[in-house]
Nucleic acid binder design. Structure first.
Lengths: 210, 210
DNA sequence: GGTATTATCTTGACACTGCAAAGTTAAGCG
DNA sequence: CGCTTAACTTTGCAGTGTCAAGATAATACC
């Protein structure tokens, strides 16, 4: 007679307890987002990918927006990382650093368009969440310190008001290029080979800080 | 005995044929969009506002995205109009004109944040539609001719490649400011009084064209 | 080790959504 | 008047997010 084989699998072919469902759901959610975009994103699609029931995420994330909040936080981590990668390969002077940071921002958006839109073009993540707020703020803080480094390099540190303009100009330039390119709205620039495109992005970034 | 009173009202209290349902639906859709955002937008909510059955729009717009396409087209018309309004009140020299155009772009986004997001941050409108494509292109063309005017003013007209950089820089700057400010992400700038804020936007715009 | 508790996951139900099909009303036109 | 067609309603269906209740496994405690 057959043993009940209760040791590792349920009759459905998978263990009742997933083990690491929380991060598996974030992975599945990113895949779902990549393939169907925010506007096609569905919780039941995510759970299908992860092979669990449609109500499984509730315990970990509350509702769908809770899962998207965690996904957005992962996005900000990756954005920061991409910017650092580009800065590491750039000359160490402050202006080149901020140009590289802007190029990293745009490259992130091009490599993760749906995630970028979740982070900056959606109301679904809960931006009041402590985790998300902290990581998003730290991305902003890096920008501010880069701008400060530029103005310090120039000998005469600017007043706060003037520096605020530089911060707004730098962020807006990177963000505008990122959003338009990721949406395919700026194809005269977007269809160029990556290295040439990135040089031009750096040129445009350099104008923002004066 | 009662007359069937078939002259003007149905038993539901409204005429069976609306008369101008098409534009009434676009109005209702804009209100729905303003109140619930793209991500809360629902066709049934729109028809409730317009006081018709939930399937009434199908005849005029096909599906929900068809209605959003018409709404996006109205958005581009209003964007162009706002930019023209700001240019009309600005000095006629080319640089001031492009600065004013950028300020108009941002002001439009601040006054119509949900519409702006529909136009630039959504995949739902059918951007291949002839009407929408034409009006969106004409907005882009105005930008290109403004940039050309600047470079012509400077005596030596630039080559196409250089002008393309100026176009990308100007659009990205305006778009980045618009998107970030409308999303409340740039509050050091966004919370200033409108006239001061607009002067700073013009300053940032002026850096984009060199 | 055995039992109670708690965390994790499933099942079922509900209201809402967009869309398609079929029916109803009115308008245009001979 | 009658026919055709446009405009709108009703009905039905599959898919969605969320809630409540149940099932199962891990853990805590004795």
């Amino acid at each position: 007679m057959l043993a009940p084989m209760k040791d590792d699998k349920s009759p459905a072919g998978r263990p009742y307890h997933h083990g690491d469902l929380s991060s598996a759901l974030i992975d599945a959610a990113e895949e779902e987002l990549k393939q169907r975009g925010i506007e096609g994103f569905s919780m039941r699609g995510v759970t299908k990918r992860a092979g669990v029931s449609h109500a499984a995420p509730a315990h970990h994330f509350g509702d769908a927006n809770g899962l998207l909040t965690a996904l957005a936080a992962r996005g900000f981590e990756r954005l920061i990382q991409t910017q650092r990668d580009f800065r590491r390969r750039a000359p160490s002077n402050a202006r080149k650093q901020i140009e590289a940071s802007g190029v990293g921002y745009v490259v992130f958006a091009l490599e993760n368009p749906a995630l970028f839109r979740l982070m900056f073009g959606s109301d679904r993540p809960h931006f009041g969440s402590a985790d998300l707020q902290r990581i998003a703020e730290s991305a902003f803080d890096e920008l501010v310190s880069l701008v400060r480094a530029v103005t310090n390099d120039q000998g005469s540190p600017k007043r706060d008001g003037a520096m605020m303009i530089d911060v707004a100009a730098a962020w807006a330039t990177a963000h505008g290029l990122a959003d338009l390119l990721a949406a395919g709205r700026l194809n005269t620039l977007g269809t160029l080979p990556a290295n040439i495109r990135n040089r031009r992005i750096a040129t445009i970034m350099s104008r923002a800080i004066q």
